[in-house]
Computed example of a mutant assay.
Amino acid sequence: MKVHKSLVLALLLACGSSMAIAAKGPAIRIGIDTAYPPFASKNAAGKLQGLDIDILNAVCKKLDAQCSWVETPFDKLISGLLTARYDLIGSSLNITEERAKSVAFTDPMYSVPVQLVAAKGSNLQPTPAALKSKRVGVLKDSVSDAWAKAHLEPYGVTLVQYPTQDKVYLDLISGKIDASLQDAQAAYTGFLKTAFGNGYSFAGGPLQDNALFGAGMGLGLRKSDTALHQQINDALKALKADGTLDRIAHQYTQITVLKAAATK
């Protein structure tokens, strides 16, 4: 009888332990491009840092989730999500109609304009006439890539696609391309403010194209993961409401945090 009681007690303890684990938040694998400061990069010690990293850490804390990172080049982020390498795209993406065909998005978190960067004194502008016969570097599968394909490539501008943004800047410095097109904050923090970007500047103002640039930037999930989608949206709403998102954003950027979800 004593053995029987011991077994019952052990089973009860095991069940209690399992319930405690189940009471924790979800385990979330996060795909992240780590070559895109100030949104996500690595410091000298190899630790992840940046705006998207801090937002995701805050989301994971809010959900009491066990989060892990899966480093992935930008142009592989969506395919990695759809093949279940991870559960969430942590590198914020412009919420566009084209991407929304295959990916579910959280409510928009913030908005970042797109601008051209070129050597100082080049007199280049983000127009077909100014860039004809020039080579422009873009991050593959980004909204900058889509815009350049629609507005530049048909008019004699050569586009050069890259898997990560840092490679774009390297080729710009070496003269392999004449200009780069990317979101303005990434260009400002990740290149123009550095010693490598000393001889470069924005060429022309922010571009406008609501259809291609979307209603803001959000996190991507599989369409089938409706419960996780709702959990992350709820966490983001709470972080907006208590000012956490604003505080994180202003540590790294001059971007506009979007207070309400845009209408679809």
Rank of each mutant, 00 (worst) to 15 (best):
R135Q: 15
Y200V: 04
S91R: 05
L131G: 06
V136P: 05
L159F: 01
M1A: 14
L152I: 04
D234G: 09
V257N: 10
A14W: 08
R29W: 03
L116W: 08
I21Q: 13
D145K: 00
G16K: 02
T96I: 01
Y36R: 14
A27P: 08
G243C: 03
A58V: 03
G218K: 05
P26Q: 15
A227H: 10
G80M: 07
S180L: 01
Y200Q: 05
T256M: 04
F191T: 11
A118Q: 04
K47Y: 15
T72Y: 09
K264W: 00
A260M: 05
P163K: 01
A119E: 15
K259M: 13
L88M: 13
P126L: 04
G216F: 01
A45Q: 11
A35Q: 06
A184H: 14
I53V: 12
T96A: 00
S91V: 00
L221P: 06
M217N: 15
A65V: 05
K101C: 04
P154W: 04
V160Q: 03
H250Q: 11
K61N: 15
A186F: 00
L81Y: 09
L172F: 01
K62G: 12
L63I: 10
V136F: 03
T83R: 13
Y188W: 14
M109F: 06
G121C: 12
V70S: 12
D145N: 04
K193P: 06
H4N: 13
G214C: 01
I28L: 02
A65S: 06
K120P: 06
I78P: 07
Y86Q: 08
S180D: 08
Q185M: 07
S133E: 13
F213W: 02
A261N: 07
A262I: 04
S17Q: 15
K42I: 11
L116I: 05
A22V: 15
D75S: 02
E97F: 02
R222M: 13
A100D: 07
L181E: 01
H151P: 01
G137A: 08
P163L: 01
F105A: 01
I248V: 09
I28P: 11
S18Y: 11
A27D: 10
Y155G: 08
P26D: 06
A119K: 12
A261C: 09
Q115V: 06
T253N: 11
A227P: 11
N198V: 08
D33A: 13
S142L: 01
E71Q: 03
P126Y: 02
L207F: 07
F213E: 00
K2Y: 13
A40E: 04
K101G: 07
K101F: 01
Y162P: 02
Q161T: 12
A84G: 11
S133Y: 10
P128L: 02
Q49P: 09
A130T: 07
T244K: 13
A35D: 15
E71C: 09
N57K: 13
W147D: 02
C60E: 12
Y162L: 02
T164G: 09
V157D: 12
T256D: 12
A235V: 03
S18C: 10
G16I: 09
K240L: 11
A260K: 02
E98W: 07
L152P: 02
